[in-house]
Write a protein that binds this DNA or RNA. Structure first.
Lengths: 219, 219
DNA sequence: GTCTATAGGCTGATAGAC
DNA sequence: GTCTATCAGCCTATAGAC
C-alpha cells in the first residue's frame, strides 16, 4: 500500500510549502499583505489549488498563528532558568518584548490583528481540551510564574490571573505602541520595557509589614 | 464683495460635510472601512468631487485624527480637578481608558492604525511649533501631571517623560488588547485598568527612606 | 489534482465633458 | 464645481475543462 502513503506524503508536503510561503509573505508584508495569488506564485501552483489544502485565507492565518505562539513560548521559556521569582517575571517580560521587536509581523498577527485569530486558538482549548493549545500554554506560563512568586511571598497576588494579565497587557502596550508609532515615543523601547516591568514588580512587592516566611524583601 | 465670502462659506461647509460623513463611517466601520465612494454616497456628491477638497483619503484620516485627539483630551482634562497628584495620575489613566472603550474606532485610528496618522500630528509640532497640535498637547498633559507629582514628592520620577510614557504605554496595552481580543482576557477591562494604574503608582512611590518634604506617603 | 477562466466584487485616483 | 466614465489595479472564490 505504498502508493497511498506516497500520495499522503506529497499532499502534506505541498501543504507545508503553502504554509512556508505564507509565512514568508506575512513576515515581510504583514497579514494584510497575504493573498492567495502571492502564495500561488511562490509555490508555482495556481491560486485555486490552495483551496484544496486550506478552506480559505483565514485558515492559513490561523495555522501560522498557532506556530507563532510556539515561537513566542520559545522566547519566554528560558526565563524558567531564573531562580528568583521576581527576576523570573521580569525575564519573561523581557523575552516577550524581545519576541515582539524581533518578529514584528508575527507579533502583529498574534496580538494586533483585528480578525480574531487568537481567539480560536484559545477557544480550541476551552471546548475540547486540545493537547496542542499554544495560545493557552503561553498564557499559562505567565500565570504559573506569578503563582510561584506569590507562593514564595515575593509578590502580592491574590488573583494570579489578574496579575498575569496586568503584566501581559502592560508589556504588550510597550511593544504594540512601539510597532505602530515608534517615532512618537521619546524613550527607547528597551527602557520602557525595563521601567514597566520593574515598576510593576515594585508595586507588587509585599509591604514591609506583610512579609511571608520564605521571602526576603529586597530594599 | 459678499459673493466671494458666500462661496468661501459654501466651500467650507461642504468640506465639513465630507469630514462629518467620514467620521461617521470611521466610527462604525473603522478607518479600513472608509472609502471615497462611501463618503460620496453619504454627501450625495460624486467621488471625484472629494478630491477637490482633500488631496486624498489619508488627508481626511489625518484631519479626523486631529479632532479625535481633542476628543481624547476632553476625557483626560477633568482629572486636573483631582488635587492629590497620585490620584490625579490615576484619574488620567482612567479617563484615557474610558475614551478607548467608549470610542473604540477613534482610539484605533489614533493609536492602532499602522499608517502613521499620529506621527504627522506630532511632527507638525516639532518642526513648525504648531499652535494647534493636539497630539503633543495630549502627551504633554501626562508629562506635566507626572512632573507635578514628582515635584510634590508623591512619586519618584527622575525622567518625567520616561515615566509618562511608561504609564501611557501600560494603559494603552490594556485598551488595545481589549479592543483586539477581548475574549481572550479573563479579567474585566476595568479591573485591568485599575490594577495597572495603582500597581504602577505603588511602584513609583518613594521608598520610606526618601520622603520629600511636602509629601506624605500613604501606606 | 490541477488548471484556466471568470464571476463578482472591491479600491484610489484622474481626464475631460459640461 | 461637479459630473460621468474610466483606468488600472487589487481581491476571494468557484465552475468546469483536462
Amino acid at each position: 500500500m505504498g502508493i497511498a502513503e506516497r500520495k499522503e506524503r506529497q499532499r502534506a508536503e505541498l501543504r507545508e510549502q503553502i504554509l512556508a510561503a505564507a509565512r514568508r509573505i506575512v513576515l515581510d508584508e504583514g497579514f494584510a499583505g497575504l493573498t492567495m495569488r502571492k502564495i500561488a506564485d511562490a509555490i508555482e501552483y495556481s491560486a485555486a489549488t490552495i483551496y484544496l489544502y486550506f478552506e480559505n485565507r483565514e485558515a492559513i492565518g490561523l495555522q501560522l498563528c498557532r506556530e507563532s505562539f510556539e515561537h513566542l513560548v520559545g522566547y519566554m521559556a528560558p526565563a524558567m532558568q531564573v531562580a528568583d521569582p521576581r527576576d523570573r517575571l521580569i525575564a519573561i517580560g523581557r523575552g516577550y518584548a524581545r519576541f515582539g521587536f524581533e518578529h514584528p509581523e508575527e507579533y502583529k498577527l498574534l496580538f494586533m490583528t483585528d480578525s480574531a485569530f487568537m481567539e480560536p486558538v484559545f477557544a480550541a482549548e476551552k471546548q475540547l481540551d486540545d493537547v496542542d493549545d499554544p495560545g493557552g500554554r503561553a498564557f499559562q506560563f505567565v500565570v504559573d510564574a506569578v503563582q510561584t512568586a506569590a507562593d514564595a511571598g515575593a509578590i502580592v497576588a491574590t488573583d494570579s490571573e489578574l496579575i498575569a494579565e496586568t503584566l501581559w497587557t502592560a508589556v504588550h502596550g510597550v511593544v504594540s505602541l512601539t510597532l505602530t508609532c515608534r517615532e512618537v515615543l521619546v524613550s527607547s523601547a528597551d527602557a520602557l520595557v525595563e521601567t514597566v516591568c520593574t515598576t510593576l514588580l515594585r508595586g507588587l512587592a509585599p509591604a514591609s509589614g506583610d512579609v511571608t516566611p520564605g521571602s526576603r524583601s529586597t530594599s
